[in-house]
Design a protein around this nucleic acid. Structure first.
Length: 829
RNA sequence: GCGAGAGUGGCGGAAUUUGGUAGACGCGCUGGACUUAGGAUCCAGUGGUUCACACCGUGGGGGUUCGAGUCCCCCCUCUCGCACCA
């Protein structure tokens, strides 16, 4: 065999071509095999694959290939999250069209992924901007509309001026737009909403039944849903018709409520102040708050408010409570109004001190009443009630229920649950998105597009206004449409859907991307769903992963899916870091995957990505580390080609076993490695330690190969071949090209992915000798090599007889000897 | 403030599932072999102090145990998420 060097530039395209020709990664439903659906988050076609993708997809591919070899029928698809704003911006910048830009990018990125050798079933590829995809989304939208799961409402919405569109609550991060990081303003606008709140309870409950998800993602979702138990209480206005409703978790403190705080956005704020002389002051205050940035308003030091001029009545004490407007009250939470109990809520306490409002102590701790004049801060713990009429002496917990019950009897309140979760606003004033299939008719109002008229195709001949914004509201020809209800002149809805809608069900569509009779083929989606393992970045912990869970439940309730949850297991992989921070254009620390593949080959890049850190942790990019991975593959190449030239496939080990020595050790190492790699991947997704184990095996092969003393030893060729075949097979999920190449050179047939994963032989793991560690008082003092069959007594005797050990015993009486099965002796003196 | 996760050689990281040889594997470094040459390849060494014996060593401090990186309590630091949630 000529000393041919490993050249990935030769090897990799050849195998990619062969896999492609053979349709090696095509899958179909097969009731005879257990199915496994392995999915990585699909990319936005921004132009180029980045290292984060490579890491994400290397993990998914390693797992997919491994499981397929383990006998699973593995679905492993890929597609494109193809709607979205960057396409519009790029189109304006390059005087092109979002569709052209998007599809060009998809072509380029698909080629990049193919060069990395991922085992996708490309026949299932889908792009969400394709009408054959979003038509079904439009259909689901209409079915949701018919069921009351979608409604349209004019509300104060999060408006991003830069993106010229509204945003869902989830898409506002600390007052900034999730996409462009510009401040988000409030704007009154009509939007369509998905009633995700209808599923709040179920979304929350299922979090307890998802052991395959990381705890922190579950926690983030729990918090986002934000269920809290409390009461709704009605405060009648003083000498005035009307009332103010509040939500409180502390109904037990009701007797201490001495004033009322409204959110500046509360409709009653302006209304109540009319004609009180406070009208102007209230208006000025609201204006001021509106101008405040999110951060200023949230600042602890800026708690302020203004009196509205009116009062309301505490329903249990009859206390005349002044009604304030306060900047710390949030319209989005509860009812937008808060009963203020300054003695038992820190914010109310500070507010009351600032504006000279009355304090009434109603909860006491074990130390008894503090006296309001002595309070330097609110007492927010639970305790026992005082100054609360017939509820005096009750515990907070009991009183909450009792007071709510009392109020309920008078029609002034009830126990209730409140969620932080708001309905999902899905209208976007953008062009490059799925059209919302609704028609506005002056006579009939909002009418859904008839099912038979779907899809409402996004008109591709639109010209994007260079100033930004959507061209759709100006496309008269497209907008004008007959009202399906009365036949009169109607107008199409010009808003498009949030692109998170597309990504909320693409995983199910992969099961049947060509299905033409509905969103999902019941048979195929029934076979494949749910996704067994989902892999992607943590940044979607709330957004995408919550929306997808919701949409899955909706699809279930519409009869399209049989599962309750979309993703059984979730793996959130860490970021790819360079020079201490995430790779980004702005930091200038981006490493281009293409360039790395060109320089080192895809297998090397993949092995490095999997080896440098466990999947969940952040990974430090290191060019030297990549070189290390490259060296390892070269080493593997060298030992394997050498062995391929020295023996033929099927070379058998001696019938009566290998003699004690390096060859038998290698045989044992081979099977230990099979065991370790299998367990590391299957149970813990620890590709890093799996690769390390193969490295050890390769190192040992190399030593045996070079050992001249073994030149004519019986079984040498067979032991080496067995070890090399194992190494090549075990590394194949991570480095598939070189593995298939070497497999062929070793005389193997077909692709490794079609071969069964190796099984270790228990007998090979049994060794003639064992290493026993001897401790004295828990400190390691000696190592003994004993025959494997040495029993407890033999171990103990050998340990005590060891001269090194004896020097530590110094004739002291042995109190106790602890033996750990075949491994360790601890002598206590 | 609340929640989650993490602190181990010069570096990335093993060992934490099940308490039992701390530092696997790789990078870097040192020495050697081969060589006209080596930034290729191969071999060996590589936690610290020490000539050695030995001692010390997993963020800090306590504890449980024959034995603790691993379990328990307290504290410190870092990362991430949420953050006026009534």
């Amino acid at each position: 065999m000529p000393d041919e060097r490993y050249d990935p530039a030769q090897v990799e395209p050849r195998w990619q071509e062969r896999w492609n020709q053979a349709g090696a990664f095509k899958v179909a439903e097969d009731p005879g095999k257990p199915k496994y659906y392995c999915l990585e988050m699909f990319p936005y076609p921004s132009g180029r694959i980045h290292m984060g993708h490579v890491r994400n997809y290397s993990i998914g591919d390693g797992l997919s290939r491994f499981l397929r070899m383990r006998g699973f029928n593995v679905l492993h698809p890929m597609g494109w999250d193809a709607f979205g704003m960057p396409a519009e911006n790029a189109a304006i910048a390059h005087d092109s069209h979002p569709a052209t830009w998007t599809y060009d990018n998809i072509d380029f990125m698909r080629a990049q992924l193919k060069k990395l050798g991922f085992s996708y079933d490309w026949e299932r590829e889908l792009a969400t901007c394709d009408p054959s995809y979003y038509r079904w989304e439009q259909r689901v939208f209409i079915e949701m509309w018919n069921r009351g799961l979608v409604y349209r409402k004019k509300t104060l919405a999060n408006w991003c001026e830069t993106c010229k569109t509204v945003l869902a609550n989830e898409q506002v991060e600390q007052g900034l737009c999730w996409r462009c990081s510009q401040p988000v303003a409030q704007k009154s606008i009509a939007s369509y909403f998905f009633k995700i709140t209808e599923y709040a309870e179920e979304l929350l409950e299922w979090l307890d039944k998802m052991p395959g998800w990381p705890e922190r993602v579950l926690t983030m979702q729990r918090h986002w849903i934000g269920k809290s138990y409390g009461a709704e209480i009605v405060f009648p206005l003083w000498d005035h018709p009307g009332e103010i409703k509040v939500f409180t978790t502390r109904a037990d403190t009701l007797f201490g409520a001495t004033f009322m705080s409204l959110a500046p956005e509360h409709p009653l704020a302006v209304e109540l102040s009319q004609g009180t002389g406070q009208e102007q002051a209230v208006k000025d205050f609201i204006d001021k708050v509106k101008r405040q940035s999110f951060a200023d308003r949230a600042d602890e030091k800026n708690k302020e408010g203004v009196f509205t001029g009116v009062y309301c009545k505490n329903p249990v004490t009859g206390f005349k409570m002044p009604v304030f407007v306060a900047n710390f009250v949030l319209m989005e939470y509860g009812t937008g109004a808060v009963m203020a109990v300054p003695t038992h809520d820190q914010r109310d306490f500070e507010f009351a001190r600032k504006y000279g409002l009355e304090l009434k102590e109603v909860i006491v701790g074990p130390e008894g009443p503090m006296g309001v004049e002595n309070m330097t801060q609110a007492f927010t713990d639970y305790g026992a009630l005082i100054n609360s009429g017939k509820f005096d002496g009750m515990t907070s917990a009991d009183a909450k229920r009792a007071i709510a019950a009392e109020l309920a009897g008078q029609g002034l309140g009830k126990e209730t649950v409140n969620f932080r979760l708001r309905d999902w606003g899905i209208s976007r004033q953008r062009y490059w998105g799925a059209p919302i299939p609704m028609i506005h008719c002056d006579k009939c109002g909002l009418v859904p597009v008839p099912m038979d008229d779907l899809p409402v195709v996004l008109p591709l001949d639109a010209q994007l206004p260079p100033t930004g914004g959507s061209p759709l509201p100006h496309l008269e020809d497209w907008l004008k449409v007959a009202c399906p209800s009365c036949g009169g002149q109607g107008r199409r809805e010009a808003d498009t859907m949030d692109t998170f809608v597309e990504s909320s069900w693409y995983f199910a569509r992969y099961s049947c991307p060509d299905y033409g009779d509905g969103p999902l083929d019941p048979e195929r989606s029934g076979y494949w769903m749910p996704v067994d393992q989902y892999i992607g970045g943590i940044e979607h912990a709330v957004l995408h992963l919550l929306y997808s869970r919701f949409f899955t439940k909706v699809l279930r309730d519409l009869g399209y899916l049989k599962v309750d949850e979309p993703f059984t297991k979730l793996l959130t992989q860490g970021m790819v870091i360079k020079d201490g921070s995430k790779m980004s254009k702005s930091k200038g620390n981006v490493v281009d995957p293409d360039e790395m593949v060109k320089r080192y080959g895809a297998d090397t890049v993949r092995v490095f990505m999997l080896f440098a850190a466990p999947p969940e942790r952040d990974l430090d990019w290191s060019e030297q580390g990549v070189e290390g991975a490259s060296r390892f593959l070269q080493r593997l190449w060298r030992v394997a080609t050498l062995v391929a030239g020295q023996s033929a496939a099927g070379e058998a080990l001696p019938a009566n076993g290998l003699a004690e020595g390096p060859l038998k050790d290698l045989h044992a190492k081979t099977h230990e490695t099979i065991k370790k790699v299998s367990e590391d991947i299957a149970e813990r997704y620890q590709f890093n330690t799996a690769i390390a184990a193969v490295m050890e095996l390769v190192n040992q092969i190399s030593l045996v190969e070079q050992d001249e003393a073994l030149a004519g030893a019986e079984g040498r060729a067979a032991a080496l071949r067995e070890a090399v075949e194992a190494a090549v097979t075990l590394i194949s999920p991570m480095a598939p090209h070189i593995a298939d190449e070497l497999w062929e050179r070793l005389g193997g047939e077909g692709f490794l992915i079609d071969r069964p994963w190796p099984v270790y032989d228990d007998k090979a793991l049994v060794k003639a000798e064992k290493l026993v560690v001897v401790q004295v008082n828990g400190k390691k003092r000696a190592e003994l090599t004993l025959p494997a069959e040495a029993g407890d007594q033999a171990m103990k005797d050998a340990a005590l007889a060891d001269p090194k050990v004896q020097s530590f015993l110094e004739g002291k009486p042995v109190k106790k000897v602890i033996l750990v099965q075949g491994k360790l002796v601890n002598i206590v003196v």
